[in-house]
C-alpha cells in the first residue's frame, strides 16, 4: 500500500539477509572413537556447526544448559546454526564421558 515504505523494508531485509552469510562460518566438530574433537571450540552466533559422527554408534551433542540437543546417527553429519551466545558445556547423552565446550560469541 505504501510503496516507499515497502521498498525500504525490502532493502532492510536484503541487507539483513546479506549480513548473516557474509560473516557466518562453518565449524566442523568430529565425533570419532568415542571422543569429540576439538574438545574446545569457538564460534559466533549465526555460524553453522557441522556435527560429524564417524563412529558406528549414535551420539548426541547435548548442552548442559539446555541450549541445544542434537542427535547424530552413525556415520552421519548434521548441521545446526547457532542462535544464542554463551559458553556451553555439552556432552553425549549416550556416552557421558564424551565432553566438550563450545564458546559462542554474540
Amino acid at each position: 500500500m505504501l510503496p516507499g515504505r515497502y521498498l525500504a523494508t525490502l532493502a532492510l531485509l536484503a541487507l539483513g539477509a546479506l549480513a548473516v552469510p557474509a560473516h557466518a562460518a562453518t565449524l566442523r566438530i568430529v565425533m570419532e572413537n568415542m571422543a569429540i574433537s576439538p574438545a574446545e571450540a569457538s564460534a559466533k552466533v549465526g555460524d553453522t556447526i557441522e556435527w560429524v559422527n564417524k563412529d558406528v554408534l549414535a551420539h548426541t551433542a547435548t548442552a548442559k544448559n539446555g541450549d541445544f540437543d542434537v542427535t547424530i546417527a552413525p556415520k552421519q553429519t548434521i548441521r545446526s546454526v547457532l542462535i544464542k551466545a554463551g559458553t556451553v558445556d555439552y556432552y553425549c547423552r549416550y556416552h557421558p564421558n564424551m565432553k566438550a565446550v563450545l564458546t559462542i560469541a554474540p
Binding site: N33, M34, D55, V56, L57, H95, P96, N97, M98
Partner: peptide, 16 residues
C-alpha cells in the same frame, strides 16, 4: 580396535 575404544568408553561410563 574400534570395539576397544567403545568399550573403554563404556567402562568409564559404568565407573561413573
Amino acid at each position: 580396535q574400534t570395539g576397544l575404544k567403545i568399550f573403554q568408553g563404556h567402562q568409564q561410563h559404568a565407573e561413573h
